[in-house]
């Protein structure tokens, strides 16, 4: 069985974002990382590969992006991915990314595709399922756990006010979220050394174009400062919430 991870490369999410004078996000100094949700998906795929009962033999990461992203793909190899494939185009929206990924998947063999629920930069929450739709792969979303047992793929998916376990046949694409793995795997020193010598497979992109375009960025208006209530009269916060903010009633 082969697992493919759709991997997005993002600016480190914990930084503060500023806009340049032209009104674009200033990200040139921000380090690039594996999208946190994709990193958890990769971690779970590697756990499955290490479990002989799962039958998972190969884990591949698939990415559409420029050559400047190779260092990030190398981290995925250092974590334990067997192959890194980069489709050589910088997609301008989720539709374009999904078009490129879907065209690749149509021509290659796999059993399970995992994609994180969203990228931590543009929060589009679109690429995984657009890819499933364009490649015509059965899909499942809101997945918080995946197990592979003797060729059977079992998903736990979150519902509104509950969760369920479902079984699906391969090939299937799953959009995964919190719970899929506890902590992202740290590459070992040996993994880092090995990854240095591993090639990154570079693929010529199919025809693609975006369907959406961000025309303006704007910082939210500054918030008025927090009104402080003295700790020895905490009851006063209830007055403010009831009479000023009007968000509670007794």
């Amino acid at each position: 069985m082969e697992i493919v991870i759709l991997l997005s490369v993002v600016p480190d999410t914990t930084v503060r974002v500023r806009l340049t004078e032209e009104g674009l996000p200033e990200l040139s100094q921000v380090p690039l990382v594996i999208n946190p949700w994709d990193e958890l998906a990769l971690t779970r795929a590697l756990e499955l590969k290490e479990d002989p009962a799962s039958g998972v033999e190969k884990v591949t990461v698939l990415h559409a992006g420029p050559a400047t992203h190779d260092a990030v793909l190398r981290k995925a190899l250092a974590m334990g991915a067997g192959e890194a494939v980069r489709i050589d185009r910088d997609p301008q929206d989720a539709w374009e990314a999904a078009t490129l990924l879907a065209e690749y998947l149509k021509e290659h063999a796999y059993d399970l595709v995992l994609a994180g629920v969203e990228s931590s930069d543009y929060n589009g929450a679109a690429t995984g399922l657009l890819t499933a739709g364009l490649a015509d792969i059965p899909s499942v979303a809101a997945v918080s756990y995946v197990e592979v047992k003797e060729g059977e793929i079992l998903f736990t998916r979150d519902l509104e006010g509950g969760r369920e376990q479902v079984r699906m046949d391969a090939p299937v694409l799953a959009v995964v979220q919190k719970g899929i793995a506890r902590e992202p795997r740290m590459p070992s020193m040996r993994g880092i050394m090995m990854a240095r010598r591993m090639p990154i497979t570079v693929v010529t992109p199919a025809q693609s174009k975006p369907l959406t375009r961000t025309v303006r960025f704007e910082m939210p208006p500054p918030k008025p400062p927090c009104k402080m209530v003295p700790a020895d009269e905490p009851e006063k916060i209830l007055d403010l919430l009831e009479q000023e903010a009007k968000v509670i009633r007794f």
Binding site: W95, A125, G133, L134, S139, A142, R157
Partner: peptide
């Protein structure tokens, strides 16, 4: 922007060749 909506909106967009914006 619910579990069902987040799943079905991009799938419908893919089938209809429609641009999609979330949230």
């Amino acid at each position: 922007y619910s579990p069902a909506g987040k799943a079905l909106a991009p799938l419908a967009a893919a089938r209809l060749q429609a641009g999609y914006v979330s949230a």
